[in-house]
Every structure is written in structure tokens, then in C-alpha cells.
Amino acid sequence: MSKRDAKDSMNSQATLSVSDDSIAGMLCDDSRVEQAVRLIMKKYGEPLYWHIRRMVVAHDDAQDVLQETMINVYKYRSTYSNEFPLSSWLYKIATNESLKLLKSKSTGMVSVDDLGDSLKETVRDEAGPDADETLVLLQEAIALLPTKQKMVFNLRYYDEKSYEEIHQIVGDSVNTLKTNYHYAVEKIKNYITEHQL
């Protein structure tokens, strides 16, 4: 590891150790808001990107949604309450922005859930040629899920959030979330079993 890489790595570690409370404090201080945004991007940028990407699938859409998410973090920073973890607030904004984009794409359709087939096609386009077939099938199965089940599954399976955290992000009761996750898992298993050679 070069000297520069080592320094970058130390900076990253220092960023990750900055507490969410400190970041939230900076966010409310006008003179430190840009520093707060940089810290949020360093600490949560990647998980938020992947959360969005799993919802909207295409990278270009994920890029737009992540940018809008961060602008909304700045615009609505005064609405953040310490009652909830900062990460839940960020995920909530990212989820809402993802849904907003999907809704804008579903004009003329009955609901966002009707986008399933087009999202499934995008999965194939976006997956690299060397992508693992089972992982592509898993993403196709997720793309076909109803939006609520998709959100719950992604947050639980990939982000390993507790049902309490998912409740803070999505808003449904814990029991409803558990039911949604259960149905999502069943549908995904059936899809992969049917389509796997």
C-alpha cells in the first residue's frame, strides 16, 4: 500500500467513526452544512446508492435519484429529528425519491407495480456479461415483486436492517413488514427454481 493510499484509508476510517449525532449537528449549522454533506456521502453514499439501484435498477436513474436525495437532505435538514437514527432518515428520503422516479416512469400504467417487466429487462441490460446467472435471476425476481415487498426484501436481505428500522423507513407495522418479507422470499424462491436450468 502506497503512502497516499494509507493516508486515504486512514481518512476513510476517521470519517466512518464520526458519529451520526455529530453529522446531524453539522447539518443544522449553516457554516458546516457542506462538510456534513461530504461526511454523509463518505459514510452512507455507497449503501444509499445500492439501495436506490436495487429499486430503480439502471445506473443513470440511480445517479439522478442519489443526487436528488442529497439535495433534499440539505433542503429539509431542519425537519430531521434525533428520535430516529440518521441512517433511517436518509434511507427514507432515498426510498421516497426512488418511488418518485418509478412513478414518473409509470405514466399511463395503473401503478408502479406494472413496471416489473420493464425493470426485469433492465436487469439483463445492466448486468455485466460475466455476472453470475443466479444473481441475475435473483435481481429479475426482485424486479417483478410488488413495490412494498421489494422495499422490505431489499432492506432486510441486503442492508440487513431490523424490522424496527424498516418500520422507520417504510412506515408499515412490523407484522405487515414480516408478512411482506415472507411473501417476497416465497416468490423469489419460486421464480429462481422455475428459471434455473
Partner: peptide, 19 residues
């Protein structure tokens, strides 16, 4: 693991763009 890739330096570039 996701079967998609995130472009290199994407987060850094996005940070600058947002700031």
C-alpha cells in the same frame, strides 16, 4: 453481491456535484 457495477470514483464525483 450485486450483478451490476458502480462506475469507478462515482461516489467522489457525486459528492463534488452535490456540494
Amino acid at each position: 453481491e450485486m450483478p451490476f457495477r458502480m462506475p469507478e470514483h462515482f461516489i467522489d464525483e457525486m459528492t463534488e456535484s452535490v456540494v
